[in-house]
């Protein structure tokens, strides 16, 4: 099955979060690697998308849509690290 990458999640996740999470750094529960969600490998089907760790292939999150509902499951994601604006002032 062909794959894409996490840039593709910006649209569906923008309807869930108040910010674009594709630049958030997610920790893989499989191997501990930390990387921007945009760099994850994304597999897509009619039902939704699955993002896998670029390092070990473990599932980071799944997105399922249909029937007027959307399920977001951060199955294999530990902490996500979000760079907040205005750090220089902190």
């Amino acid at each position: 099955m062909q794959h894409f990458d996490g840039n593709l999640l910006a649209g569906p996740l923008a309807e869930v979060f108040a910010f674009d999470p594709t630049t958030a750094r997610a920790r893989c529960n499989g191997c501990g690697a930390v990387a921007e969600l945009a760099t994850a490998l994304v597999y897509r089907s009619g039902a939704g998308s699955v993002a896998r760790c670029r390092g070990c292939g473990a599932v980071l999150l799944s997105l399922v849509e249909g029937d007027g509902r959307r399920f977001v499951n951060f199955t294999g994601t530990g902490a996500i690290e979000i760079t907040t604006a205005g750090r220089d002032d902190a």
Binding site: G6, N7, A10, G11, A14, D20, T22, T23, E36, A38, T39
Partner: peptide, 9 residues
């Protein structure tokens, strides 16, 4: 259309 999207690339 839904956008603009993406903050990484």
């Amino acid at each position: 259309v839904h956008g603009p999207l993406g903050a990484f690339f």
